[in-house]
Computed example of a mutant assay.
Amino acid sequence: MREEARAARDAAQEAFYELDTAQREVELAVETVRAVGEGQAAQQALTEYRQISAQVNEVSAEYLAALDAYDLDAEGLDAATAARARQVLEQAHRRIDGERAELARYLGRVQPLLQQAEEQLVRVTPAVGRAKQSLLAATNALEAVQAAGLRADDLAALLAELAPELTRLNEGAARHGVAATLQRAEDVALRADAIRSSAEQRPAKAREIDQRVASLRTRIQALETRAGTVGPVLSELRRRFSSECWQDLQRVPDGTAEAVRAAQQKLAEAVRAREEQRWADATAAIGTVRSLLETADGSVAMVHDRLRQLNEVSADPQREVERSRFALRDAQRLAMAGRQAPDPRHAGPLDAAVVRLDRAVATLEASGRHPDYWRFLTELAGVRETAAQVVAMIRGSH
């Protein structure tokens, strides 16, 4: 009877070890499902496991109590006690086998959930790795900016805000859940990449502003040089042509000087903003300088162009007349193409342009020693513009 009881004890002990192994396997699966922990099915599986686990613990306690209740190695063990011990241990063995089978069935039921959870967990490690790599790249870029002598306090503050998020990523999905960890990793990576990109652009932006400042400083100097030629050109205009030809240009020298002073002042503001790393202010000031220079350059060019145009028309007024008549004839031919009579929408403006041209020629011829060549040029330019508008209207209707 003692040997039979010992055999029952050994068999129960082996079954208990197998139960413990099965429970460890199921617990690992449960922890994997719990890490994902999403959906009603997962919550039901976790609730069911708590019930099964309670039953396993109860059976384990009964088995351990049976071992403690009977000393099968005692010299005074009688046959009746050995028989009861065998019966109790065999009963514990059966209950252990039952719970082990229940664990196996439970593990089979949660396999779909386990597979789904494992697939999501597989995504966690690379996602967290990418987030950490992005943080490292942002840190290196920030250090490079600071080493270049540029301030980056704003970027350093943004990077410091990510430190708690890195701590949570290190704590893992088991604590914070797979979905939350994946979302956190993606968010950290995006924010760190933005910091890195901004940091990498700082030196390039500083170089770009420096180059633009140098270029504009050269343009200001060139404008000052060109502005010096305006006075002599205006003097020649006053000496050779009637006042109507140059009165509108009288303000160009003063306006150019004012533009140069304003451009120099704004360029100095851009330099200060760049030194203080107020990039938006520096860019805005540079844009103002460019606008001032373009306007002033246009004014200076207008004075030189006026003298050139007046020289050409005074030497040969007929050239401008023929140029304008050609534009009108070309528009008239197009207006009559395929028609017995022109469309009034086309004929009216063209007839008015012919009258305007003839009147401008007559006025010039009657003006004597000091003709208003500028008005003559303006009138003929208006004639050509009318012809071009009619041509565009005709071609647009086709």
Rank of each mutant, 00 (worst) to 15 (best):
N57C: 02
A192E: 05
L28S: 12
A185N: 01
A296I: 06
R238N: 06
L223H: 08
E119Y: 08
A148W: 06
A347M: 07
L64I: 02
A335V: 04
I220E: 01
I394E: 04
A101G: 14
E27V: 09
T295N: 10
L67P: 03
L169S: 01
L357I: 09
V383E: 11
P253R: 06
Q133W: 13
E4G: 12
L107Q: 15
E269S: 09
D68P: 00
A360S: 07
D153F: 08
N311E: 14
V33I: 15
R339W: 06
E75C: 00
Q211T: 12
V122H: 11
V56S: 09
E3N: 12
S314M: 06
R217K: 14
V230N: 04
S314V: 00
A174S: 07
L136C: 00
Q318E: 15
P164H: 07
A341L: 11
L159Q: 15
S242M: 05
V289L: 07
T167R: 14
A366D: 14
T378G: 12
A79L: 09
M336C: 00
A284S: 13
A199E: 06
P232E: 08
K132W: 13
Q318R: 11
Q43N: 11
R207S: 11
R168V: 08
E186V: 05
F376W: 08
S291H: 09
G228W: 04
M302G: 10
Q250S: 12
A22E: 09
A352S: 11
T386C: 03
G39Y: 06
R86I: 01
A262H: 09
A85Y: 14
R50S: 10
A173E: 13
H176E: 01
S314R: 15
Q265E: 14
D10C: 04
